[in-house]
Design a protein around this nucleic acid. Structure first.
Lengths: 255, 255
DNA sequence: TGTCATTTGTGCGTATGTATC
DNA sequence: GGATACATACGCACAAATGAC
């Protein structure tokens, strides 16, 4: 789904300034999360909503469709729209617990490439890449932004084996996750992704890139993409300023 | 217009019998999975698709919308529709980040309880617990330590519904995760755990508890334990000093 | 830099199909 | 059967983002 960020709203009553359906969406969303329409209860019909909001059926249906995408309601032809969950899950963060979701994330944000360079890794970097020293890699430095947001969401360094250098060149030109390009262009198959998350603080470089002060807490997410033999095909280091990002995942018990 | 009895079109191999958009959807889907439109390439424009399929823009957009929901394409205003994946699967699942692992962690460390108190939650805390204000909960404050280490690994606040207060009393006396105690003593069953990870900085309280300076980066892991109906049975807020803890997980592709 | 054609996003009105009650 | 309510579908118009010039 889309971030749906609206431009500040015109003070007074309705805080809804963006698209027309946003007003309907916000109102219904509030009804649900605040419990005015409980789980199992039905929302008003499309026609009633058209009247209440003086909007066309298209607009109302767009709002309902988004509620459905959020998993808050279920719709049944001939019956109506039933509230299925009141999960107040915030929307300004990402749930990345599957590769598909990483791809989703990649395509809903924009990557602005700052530099692409070949490097011979050594020292700590070689350790990070689980690579012997003096091996050639390509290093891509980039900022990830949300549409309409000025401050970047994330400072990213992506490392790829030098053999895949032309993929590095293509990063950012289309809204596709890097791993997906690797798989399609080189016939590779990612079998496993190892994620590591920790907190650090911003050094001078990061502070400058992310427009924060030195020392600001940073959430670092490092992903190693491995093939079935355990070879490292890509390493991405994502640094997020505190408060701009939250990593969320769901563990479900099977059986 | 009568979409009802479609004249089967000139469709020789028209296996598409359902709605009009299904034909468009199937054709585009096949183009993608069969690789006729590769990852990173663009689909035809809406207008071109209208012509090709002799369908209205509504119909074409419905098909594109579904491809988007499947995660196969990304659409950008002014730009077009780009193929982002050739398979809808991408099914990775959490191999090493499971309920069992949380239990492992709990039993390999020691919990030192600092305080147990009943509280009526309100404001931000109520929001955190997804609980109505003025509801009674039990709050347990504790430090988690590794054996033989002096500095604590983590500052923890656990919230439980007041009904389970005696579990709170028992926390720390045996090396079992709190959720396991809840399950065995009350016959509850945790169906889902939602984890949220973010970075903040240490306030005075945290700094003192964790023996770090104020402002030190902190990795906060919040877990909501839910039953099958979505009721919150436990909320744990774990604050780790930077450098003392790293959250690691592996996503494995199942297909 | 800004203009301009292209392309998707939003929105309206209308009509018919089809599932539910 | 009939009434209700959502699903599908057409045509039109303008807004907003993009990319090329």
């Amino acid at each position: 789904m889309k971030p749906a960020v609206r431009p500040a709203a015109a003070a007074a009553a309705a805080a809804t300034e963006g698209p027309r359906f946003q007003e309907v969406l916000d109102a219904l969303h509030a009804d649900i999360v605040d419990g005015r329409v409980g789980i199992g209860e039905r929302l008003p019909t499309e026609q009633e909503l058209c009247l209440r909001f003086s909007a066309s059926r298209y607009t109302v249906r767009e709002a309902l469709r988004r509620l459905q995408d959020l998993g808050l309601i279920a719709r049944r032809q001939g019956s109506g729209s039933v509230v299925t969950a009141a999960r107040p899950d915030g929307r300004f963060h990402n749930a990345l617990s599957s590769l598909a979701e990483i791809g989703q994330y990649a395509s809903s944000t924009r990557l602005e490439v700052l530099a692409v360079e070949k490097v011979l890794v050594e020292g700590r970097t070689a350790e990070l890449l689980q690579s012997p020293p003096d091996t050639p890699w390509v290093r891509v430095v980039a900022l990830r932004r949300q549409p309409e947001e000025r401050t970047p969401l994330c400072y990213t360094e992506v490392f790829l084996p030098a053999a895949y250098a032309d993929v590095a060149q293509a990063i950012g030109t289309f809204p596709v996750a890097v791993y997906a390009v690797l798989e399609s262009r080189y016939g590779l198959r990612i079998a496993e992704v190892v994620q590591s998350i920790e907190a650090t603080s911003a050094d001078a470089n990061l502070a400058s890139r992310l427009s924060v002060e030195v020392g600001t807490p940073i959430l670092v997410v490092i992903r190693h993409y491995l093939d079935a033999e355990g070879n490292v095909l890509e390493v991405a280091v994502n640094s997020h300023a505190a408060g701009r990002y939250r990593y969320e995942m769901t563990l479900q018990r099977t059986g």
